[in-house]
Write a protein that binds this DNA or RNA. Structure first.
Lengths: 344, 344
DNA sequence: TGTTAGCACTCTAATTGAACGAGTGCTAAA
DNA sequence: TTTAGCACTCGTTCAATTAGAGTGCTAACA
């Protein structure tokens, strides 16, 4: 167990390092207002903290920097939940003051404001299809063989997918089919949609449609969508201003990760309600082993919708970021809950 | 006017520099197979070429590098149209062998293959709305006040836009209106669409719809779309492997440009048929003053559709890039012409 | 017993200077 | 007109030096 004084010193060092990005020496710690020990005393404590694994030295004659374990302890035990300052709150409020009737718009604005307020890079995962229901399905023939299938969810999300028209199917057949589908499937959760093609409308269609197999294939494809669309960035270049990214190779690695939406989704997705902090290698990805990821989830009606998060260096302003994320995720939840209720 | 020998030497130097990214000295030029002069002679010619503005020195005891004027001359007079090598052609062909029934798919693949073949960054501007016609319009109410308007073009392009539902308008009203609009506007060029709302359907709607003014506003908004969606990148990080981008600040500047789709559009858009080469500061943008942009246009039925282009360092393999762009743009034109004809 | 002053020691970053080499420009000879 | 030769320039590299920040240890102090 750490002593009171060790906690004080550990916090002081991490705070300092977060601000300056320079190794912190005993002298500068002892100069702080809230610390009244001599450099020598501090040095002794620092040596102990290093032995315990909370600090490390870049080299033998440098000051100390926090280890991953140090950051972890800092985040878990030394942070007091910070109240946001007023101007931040005003910024966020002003965003929600606008009329918002589309989820995507809200998401994009949130990503924007998040990166502006924190000057790190923000990543917002849009509502997953699961939690939304079908509002409207449309299949629009372009040529004899090709069509585009469009799906609109109750949240105003639009997905499109190119499909082949089954041999021998006429425009009128398609219209009829789409009508049947809309009648039967409207309001069905997107999660169940693919299953219900068979259970609910399969038999009906079989009666009306000649080329049953191809048609089913077409419908299956219509309902297939990628998760790519659900990843939004804010301030993509912000993080590159951090001194941690002076090296072009690091920049490239991260950029390449940004391009792989699938991967980003995997790294940022969070289920657990509340704030999640992943520090350095806890993220299990080399490109961000000197980064931390802080995420929060937003919900509606208690149902998990998506994730908002910040990517910054491990030397991140945890307290502030957590404050902003907490506040913003709650505001998003509020707004979305209203939005969803209206749609019912 | 440059002498035969000066041309030979200028070309040798630029070729060398493009390959090595290192200033080229007289000795290494004289060693080339196609050059039979001594270093001293080369030096004299180099001094002359420098005086004429085609070459410059990074410092007094370094070799020469091409100036912007040098590149310009090289591109305009020293390039022989290169035949693509076979493996490139195979790569491109294999892409077009796939079944393509959606324009966007073709665009994205083209961007991909372009960056793979050149190892620079490719940028493809999708077909502008202008040249396409309306296939289908749909307005789907989400709540009492909000709806989403969806437009499908004959090329399979889907655009969506959130709109407000005018006071007092019922779901049945919307359905009726959408029917009228589809009847009257199907096949109309997207360019004329906004105008025709008033001229063609304005009167009819006035008869049926109570809240005329708000309705028109909603329709206007439905037909308003941004150009953002039409910019596609391939190999975004490729260019950062170039030694020109060892400096993080340069990387950041370029990345920020990438985010501004509007700006990218403006820089890359090309009207003139054939290949366009813009070298260094000819691009009038600081972020890319050490880059060159080569673009080609693709068409269908002789109508300008969009632009494909490459962004690389001024020290770019012009000959090869021009060859690839030329070949690919023609293949795209072919494919699209077929695609459009089928849609008629 | 906990705290602190003092001091030798360590290591890095910055600076200097010498040696090197690539390349030039000029001159004079072929 | 071409080229060999040579002095000169300038950037790069490497080692040596220095300055400074910081540590760890010891001994004295409260």
């Amino acid at each position: 167990m750490l002593t009171e004084r060790q906690l004080l010193i550990l916090k002081a060092i991490i705070d300092d390092y977060i601000r300056s990005a320079e190794p912190v020496g005993s002298r500068s710690v002892s100069k702080r207002e809230d610390i009244s020990y001599s450099p020598a005393t501090i040095r002794n404590e620092m040596a102990d903290l290093e032995e315990l694994g909370f600090l490390e030295k870049p080299h033998s004659s440098a000051g100390r920097i926090p280890s991953q374990k140090g950051y972890r302890y800092y985040v878990d035990h030394l942070l007091s939940p910070e109240l946001l300052n007023n101007s931040d709150i005003v910024d966020i409020k002003s965003m929600f003051a606008q009329k918002i009737h589309e989820v995507e718009q809200l998401i994009e604005q949130s990503a924007q404001i998040l990166s502006n307020l924190t000057s790190y890079t923000s990543i917002v995962l849009g509502p997953e299809v699961f939690d939304t229901t079908l509002k409207h399905l449309q299949i629009i023939p372009l040529t004899k063989e090709a069509a585009v299938a469009i799906i609109v969810t109750d949240t105003g999300h639009v997905e499109k997918q190119a499909v082949d028209i089954p041999q021998g199917m006429e425009v009128t057949d398609i219209e009829m089919m789409v009508n049947i589908l809309n009648e039967r499937l409207k309001g069905v959760s997107m999660l169940e949609l693919r299953g219900k093609i068979f259970s609910e409308v399969g038999n009906v269609l079989k009666m009306h449609i000649s080329n049953y197999k191809d048609t089913m294939q077409m419908l299956e494809k219509s309902f297939t969508h990628e998760k790519n669309d659900h990843v939004f960035f804010g301030g993509k270049t912000n993080i590159f201003s951090q001194p941690e990214f002076r090296d072009v190779e690091k920049v490239r690695q991260l950029l390449e990760m940004f391009e792989e939406k699938q991967l980003v989704h995997q790294i940022f997705r969070s289920d657990s309600s509340g704030i999640t902090v992943k520090i350095g290698q806890e993220n299990k990805l080399e490109a961000i082993d000197n980064c931390s990821v802080i995420t929060a989830t937003y919900t509606a009606d208690g149902k998990h919708l998506g994730t908002i998060g910040i990517l910054g260096p491990t030397r991140m302003e945890y307290q502030r970021v957590i404050g902003v994320l907490d506040y913003l995720s709650k505001d998003m939840t509020n707004t979305l809950t209203k939005l969803y209720q209206r749609n019912k």
